[in-house]
Simulated assay, not measured.
Amino acid sequence: MKALITWGGWTGHQPERIADIFNRMLTEEGLDVTVTDSLSCFDDPDLLASLDLIVPVWTMADLSRDAARNVSEAVARGTGLAGCHGGMCDAFRGNPLWQFITGANWVAHPGGDGVKHRVTITSDDPLVAGLSDFDVETEQYYLHTDPANRVLATTRTDVVTWYHSPNGAVDMPVVWTRSWGLGRVYYNALGHAPDVIATGTPYEMLRRGLLWAAAGKAAAAGQSINHLQHAGNHG
């Protein structure tokens, strides 16, 4: 299987180090991995179509409408998309199509870094089977999420009191899967710092998720998306 990891954007998320973790993760599983620090790869629809998996590691960058459409078409035909934290769901704030594909967009992390909170497994999906609830000390992401996401883990937003608190605590999704056409999409909100996802349960969750997304390409082989195609929303 062929995977592409592309990293860059805001340096506070240490994208190169996160990309290194993903590279090691996938290489150890036998994938043929290409790593780039450029978004020009998204301008090549033939390249994207040849991949089993795309792993974006970008935060607060700009993505053109055409590039987003290229990714959309590749994923819709089976190429997997998987990633974590701001590298995927705070990647391109100005691109609604990207947010639709990934299933969310970041809006806040009340309390900043170092917030102690629990991640609760909420599914019996094989991607989290055998994993237990765990505590982390990092950013607790508040996301605007697609209700169609298949949520695998959540966190309770009663840890930090702020302007959102009068609305009441909610179980905020942390990990989910979703479909985009024939493609598989996986997201994990952890990963503000590399050490958060470098070992333990967070690493295992991501390992399973990335491999699951990559396996969607073979599962989509021979299927058509003709019945799903539409002009789309051009704003």
Results as ranks from 00 to 15, higher is better:
174 V>K: 04
136 V>I: 01
224 S>R: 00
150 R>E: 11
141 Y>E: 11
10 W>P: 00
24 R>Y: 04
93 R>V: 10
71 V>C: 09
31 L>S: 11
127 L>G: 00
118 R>C: 03
122 T>D: 11
56 P>K: 12
186 Y>T: 02
191 G>L: 06
65 R>I: 12
191 G>N: 02
124 D>L: 07
53 L>I: 12
53 L>D: 13
157 T>L: 10
218 A>T: 09
50 S>C: 15
203 Y>M: 01
178 R>T: 07
83 G>K: 08
68 A>Q: 02
195 D>F: 02
211 L>K: 05
43 D>F: 02
117 H>W: 06
57 V>F: 10
101 I>N: 03
3 A>R: 05
73 E>C: 04
161 T>A: 12
149 N>P: 13
119 V>G: 00
125 D>I: 06
5 I>T: 14
38 S>R: 14
180 W>V: 13
60 M>I: 13
36 T>M: 15
171 D>Y: 13
164 H>S: 11
66 D>R: 13
143 L>Y: 07
204 E>G: 03
213 A>Y: 00
56 P>F: 14
208 R>T: 00
190 L>E: 01
4 L>P: 07
165 S>A: 15
5 I>Q: 14
73 E>A: 07
213 A>T: 07
182 L>N: 09
116 K>A: 14
54 I>G: 12
25 M>I: 08
104 A>P: 05
235 G>A: 12
170 V>N: 10
44 D>L: 14
124 D>N: 04
110 P>K: 09
52 D>I: 00
122 T>R: 11
229 Q>E: 10
9 G>Y: 05
223 Q>G: 04
53 L>W: 04
176 W>N: 05
75 V>N: 03
124 D>H: 02
210 L>N: 01
65 R>C: 14
101 I>D: 10
231 A>L: 08
93 R>E: 12
214 A>N: 03
